[in-house]
Write a protein that binds this DNA or RNA. Structure first.
Length: 601
RNA sequence: GGUCCGGUAGCUCAGUUGGAUAGAGCAUCAGCCUUCUAAGCUGAGGGUCAUUGGUUCGAAUCCAAUCCGGAUCACCA
């Protein structure tokens, strides 16, 4: 049980006993004591004065006396300042906590709870390579999945690949027109980049044709529809839907190139999926649901045969769910897939990691599912995140103004290499260890950078200013970890017995905790609640902020107090335990962000 | 225009179930490496918490209005 919870409970019991009436945890607040006051945790008394009709000072004194006297294992003393009851927790409580947990690599994580959650993320299009926005999506999805696992959920990571549609045909047409039968192999280009180039070529040609038509006096709207290359793309889409063999072959061939490229990128950034759905397999889903919806009168058929749902009563609009030609639209496919996910996995919650430009779409999706009484309707949750933009504005793959994911990763690793070499600490590293270190640091910096911000906020990335390696960054935390490992190795190599031997029996160390030591233990103790909070909010930045605070506190402690040459043997043991536990929590929490930590750097 | 999201230090961001003098990082300035890794540590300067009003012992946090920025409101996906 967390210390906060213990304090709440002891205060509730004390108040109930003192004033002979019912209290509960919500009657007062417990928070960490501000550093400028003496004490560890503070009970805010103002909310009690109305009920008890006593001054905060009187309540504080009565409660303080009682709680310190009756919970002497927990509290050693108290003070009252202006309505705040500051309690000091006994050193023994903290020693005990350290002893029990310092070497537990699972500290803070929760037991399995029997619930299953699907997290869908990444969702790439097979007509272009991944860019910086996809990286944010991937890192978020991965991290949220890990955070949920740490909270005891059974997590299924899924991905829906957008492998069909007009945009895919565009790359295909362009390759037919300009490709000269070249391949990724023949041009030594990564497959996804190779195909992406043709997507850009399509749009260049399309633009040229539209302008040509306009110059001949055709109106803009008409020109956009009549440009020959666009008509070819639309024809190809029809051929694809009719399973025309040569179109299907080309589609398969080009998609295979893209997948090969994606695999390389996913592997590099550490993304993977338990289940991959392909839109080419799922785009017909939902048709049956349309039938059922019509029967239930949730949907209405228009005179022209198209099918609609009216959401105006819910403050939204009318939405089409099936075209007059009988084909299903985006939202219908999504409802079908949502249902399929539930049937296949019997999930308790379905999380979609999708950009905030789809907020409206996801709201509609959930609402339709609810109106249809689908069993999973209430469990659909959209984890919406803000776009990553450049200082010049939005990234547009059509115009080539994107920060490419692979380039970005390359650059980060190169920067890591440069920084590391400048510092000159790695002279005795083997070549493969060095390469791994550069990747750990470079990718760590990038993941931390993208995850430390609240997902729902859009962020501006300036490629001119490279991602920092100092301060609130991944490498800062990694460095803290490596330094702890270095100390532990040094100290324990002189001691054949495992470090941080628990202080045996009931004997407590003959030492008092210094403020930095206590602050560290207090921070470590909170880890479990931080994991919970991150899961409730589906927000990895909670973890990132926590790790940074922990690492920062440790660094202050490290500079201020020696571990190896501590003032006494007891002190040394306590500090070794603190260092070990800090390292464990850093490693475990960085893992929740998908960032590995190096043993040395 | 409707709906949703955001506005906190020069920049990037924490803090929002109401609590003590609003915090970090970067940048700027001043210090700290013969002692466990200086990718570190210590300190300084820097704030109309967008604006106005309200709620109360107390508001960056809650309510209302306004201003600014963004997203969205397709028989595209």
């Amino acid at each position: 049980m967390s210390i906060t919870k213990k304090i709440q409970e002891s205060a509730v019991e004390s108040l109930t006993h003192l004033y002979e009436q019912e209290f509960n945890e919500k009657d007062f607040q417990v928070s960490q004591t501000n550093p400028e006051f003496e004490g560890d945790y503070t009970i805010v008394l103002f909310s009690l004065i109305k009920n008890l009709k006593k001054s905060p000072d009187v309540i504080g004194k009565e409660l303080g006396d009682y709680i310190v006297k009756n919970y002497s294992l927990l509290f050693s003393k108290y003070n009252i300042i202006k309505g705040f009851l500051n309690l000091t927790v006994t050193d023994n409580y903290w020693f005990d906590l350290l002893n029990k947990n310092y070497n537990d690599v699972c500290f803070g994580k929760h037991a399995m709870n029997g619930k299953k959650i699907m997290v869908e993320y990444s969702s790439p299009n097979t007509n272009k390579p991944l860019h910086l926005g996809h990286l944010r999506n991937n890192f978020l999805g991965w991290s949220v999945a890990e955070i949920l696992k740490a909270n005891g959920y059974d997590v299924v990571k899924s991905c829906i690949v957008n492998d069909r549609g007009i945009h895919i045909c565009k790359s295909m047409i362009a390759w037919q027109m300009f490709g000269n039968m070249e391949t990724p192999e023949s041009t030594k280009t990564k497959g996804d980049h190779f195909v992406g180039e043709y997507y850009v070529k399509f749009n260049d040609e399309y633009k040229r044709e539209v302008e040509e038509l306009i110059s001949k006096g055709v109106e803009k709207d008409k020109a956009e529809k009549e440009a020959p290359i666009m008509q070819r793309a639309q024809k190809m889409l029809l051929d694809w839907e009719n399973n025309k063999p040569e179109v299907i072959d080309l589609w398969k061939k080009m998609n295979a190139w893209v997948y090969k490229g994606f695999d390389v990128t996913y592997k590099r950034i550490g993304s993977d999926f338990d289940k991959t759905y392909y839109e080419s397999n799922t785009y017909l889903l939902g048709k049956q649901i349309v039938e059922e919806g019509l029967a239930k009168k949730v949907f209405i058929k228009d005179d022209d045969g198209s099918i609609w749902i009216d959401l105006t009563e819910d403050g939204l609009d009318k939405k089409i769910v099936q075209r007059k030609d009988g084909t299903s639209v985006y939202i219908t496919q999504d409802i079908g897939l949502a249902e399929k996910k539930y049937e296949e996995y019997k999930i308790d919650k379905s999380i979609y990691v999708i950009g905030d430009e789809q907020n409206y779409h996801m709201k509609v999706l959930k609402l339709i599912a609810e109106k249809l009484d689908l069993p999973n309707a209430k469990n659909i949750f959209h984890l919406s995140y803000g776009m990553v933009e450049l200082p010049s504005g939005k990234m547009k793959s059509r115009e080539g103004t994107v920060v490419d994911a692979d380039d970005m990763v390359d650059e980060m690793i190169a920067t890591a290499k440069q920084h590391t070499e400048e510092l000159g600490k790695v002279k005795d590293f083997e070549e493969h260890e060095l390469q791994q270190l550069f990747e750990t640091i470079g990718l760590g910096a990038m993941k931390f950078y993208l995850l430390r911000v609240d997902p729902k906020k859009r962020m501006i990335f300036n490629p001119e200013e490279s991602i920092d390696f100092h301060g609130f960054t991944g490498p800062f935390v990694q460095y803290t970890y490596a330094r702890i490992q270095s100390v532990l190795k040094k100290v324990t190599s002189n001691l054949p017995i495992a470090i941080g031997i628990p202080v045996t029996g009931n004997r407590q160390p003959a030492t008092n905790l210094l403020s930095l030591e206590k602050e560290l233990i207090l921070t470590l103790e909170q880890y479990s609640q931080i994991i919970e909070q991150a899961a409730t909010e589906l927000n990895p930045s909670v973890i990132a902020n926590y790790i940074f605070h922990l690492a920062k506190t440790f660094n202050s402690f490290y500079t201020e107090h020696s571990i190896a040459n501590a003032e006494s043997e007891d002190k040394k043991q306590v500090r070794l335990q603190i260092a070990t536990m800090t390292a464990n929590v850093i490693k475990s929490s960085m893992q929740l962000l998908g960032i590995p930590v190096p043993e040395r750097m």
